[in-house]
Each structure stands twice: as structure tokens, then as C-alpha cells.
Amino acid sequence: MKYDTNFKSVKDQVSPEEWTARVELAACYRLIDQYGMTDLIYNHVTSRIPGTEHLLINLYGLLYKEITASSLVKIDVEGEIIHKPDTDYGINKSGYVIHGAIHKARPDVKCVLHTHTRAGIAVSAMNCGLLPLSQTSIRFHNHIGYHDFEGPAVDLEERERIVDDLGEHNALVMKNHGLLTCGPSVPEAFNLMYQLEQSCRSQVDAMAARTELNVPGENVLAHTAHLYQPGTRRPYGVLEWPAMLRLLDAEQKNSAYPPYWH
């Protein structure tokens, strides 16, 4: 079995647009690891290659901190592999069941993230769902969907229900499962997942304190949520992205793993 992680660069074998998408997505995987949102080798982040209906996804078996631009797999929205590195690693079926459904139904979505974090799973198991307890979580007020658990997401028939439950939102709590965010770009989808994860962590902390919780009035909730929508002030994630890359570049100097841009 061939399970090497030293992959040859594909920079000269793909279009400049695809290479840029690969580097950006690989950086996103590293950031998910950087901020403690990984789950061993599980979960996925997908990105659409500009000008195509093809997606990029991780090899199933790599740590997020091992993922590089050249290790990503090119698939279509039905999960058929178009190109992958010379390795026995494949892709996780759940990745394209969940992600492919959203990419196919939402042309506006260029990136989809799915996580199984401790706090995200905890909130996904709460009947109350995500509570508007902080400025961070209030941004999701009336801007998040919920999808009932149907078992591991390997059933293609579940695709339609995932899409329906997400609706026009860019965030979804998959009950008893985890979190999902999406967006018109990798930076925006990552930023939304970071904010959703922080919201779940703070909710678990606040509820664990076993004290009465304060929730602002509906007028404040609606106003605050509106101010954080992409078209109101700015698309959150875009301004932050260069700083995120600088963080990764600084970390790379002391890392034993190959750079994400390889």
C-alpha cells in the first residue's frame, strides 16, 4: 500500500486559477488545524475551481497539517475523481454527499466547511440550538439552519434534505453531528466557521456556569445580526485572510510538515 505524504508539485500541470484555488484551500485546512477544529483525519473542506464545476477535496487519511496544494483531489459534484496524487489514499464518501449537494444546489457557494468539534457537537445535541448569548453568536440569529441526524451522511437521498435545511443560509447545525459553513470564497467560509465555533464554545462555557443567562431583546438581536451580514458593512473573512496567511507563514518556519503552498 502506498501511503506516502511527499507529493510532487502539480503547479505546472494545472491552470493558474486552479493553482491559486489549491493554495487557498490548503491554507484553509492548515487554519482549521491551527484553531483546534480538526477531528483526526475526518471531515472536509471543499472549494470550487473557478470557471468549472469541479471541486477540490482532501485525501482521506491525511492530517489537516499535512495537506498541501498538490495533495488535493479534483472531483466533480457527484464525487467522481478526476485527478488525484499517486497514492492509495482516496476520498471520504461523506465528503461529496454533503459538500457536492450544496455546491450543486448553490452556485453562489464556492467553499464548504464541515467540522466535528467538541463544542460544535455539544451544541448540535442541545434542543435549544445555538443561543444568541454574545455578539459573536448573535450574528447567526435567524441566519442559521438545522438538519436532523439521519446517520453517517452516505445516503445520496439525504442530499436534498441537507440543501433544504441550509436554505439561503451559510451556516448549518447538523444535529447530533457537527457544524457546517459555506460562502462565496474560502476566506469568508473559514471566517464564518471560526465565528460559529467560537459561539459554540462560549455557549458551552456559559451554560456550564449554571447561572441565569442574559439574552438581549429581539430588536437588538435583529439589528446586530443584520450588521454582520456580508452585504451590510463588509464581507467578513476577506480583510482577515492576509493576516491568517502571515500566521501560517510564520508557523511554517518551525514546522516539520511541508508548506501548504507546495
Results as ranks from 00 to 15, higher is better:
D164L: 13
D164K: 15
L166P: 00
L166E: 00
L166Y: 04
L166T: 01
G167K: 03
E168D: 12
H169G: 07
H169P: 06
N170M: 09
N170F: 10
A171T: 13
V173S: 02
V173A: 01
V173D: 00
K175V: 06
K175M: 13
K175W: 12
N176H: 13
H177P: 10
G178P: 05
L179Q: 03
L179T: 02
C182R: 08
C182Y: 09
G183C: 01
G183Y: 01
G183D: 01
P187Y: 13
P187V: 14
E188V: 14
A189C: 04
F190Q: 02
N191L: 01
N191C: 04
N191T: 06
L192A: 04
M193C: 00
M193L: 09
Y194M: 00
Q195R: 01
Q195E: 03
Q195V: 00
L196N: 03
L196T: 04
E197M: 03
Q198F: 02
Q198M: 09
S199A: 07
S199N: 01
S199I: 04
C200M: 07
R201S: 06
S202V: 08
S202N: 00
Q203W: 08
Q203E: 09
V204S: 08
V204D: 10
D205Q: 00
D205M: 01
A206D: 07
M207G: 00
M207T: 13
A209K: 05
A209N: 06
T211I: 09
E212K: 03
E212D: 11
N214H: 08
N214G: 03
V215E: 01
V215M: 03
P216W: 04
G217K: 11
G217F: 08
G217R: 10
E218T: 09
E218P: 06
N219S: 07
V220W: 06
H223P: 03
T224E: 14
H226Q: 15
H226D: 15
L227Q: 15
Y228S: 12
Q229P: 05
Q229E: 14
P230E: 15
P230Q: 14
G231P: 01
G231S: 11
T232R: 12
R233G: 07
R234F: 15
R234T: 10
P235F: 09
V238K: 11
L239R: 08
L239G: 00
E240H: 08
E240M: 07
P242T: 13
P242L: 14
M244K: 15
M244R: 15
L245I: 15
L245G: 07
L245W: 08
L245N: 08
R246S: 14
L247W: 06
L247K: 13
L248F: 01
D249Q: 11
E251T: 10
E251W: 03
E251A: 13
Q252W: 09
N254C: 05
N254M: 08
S255N: 03
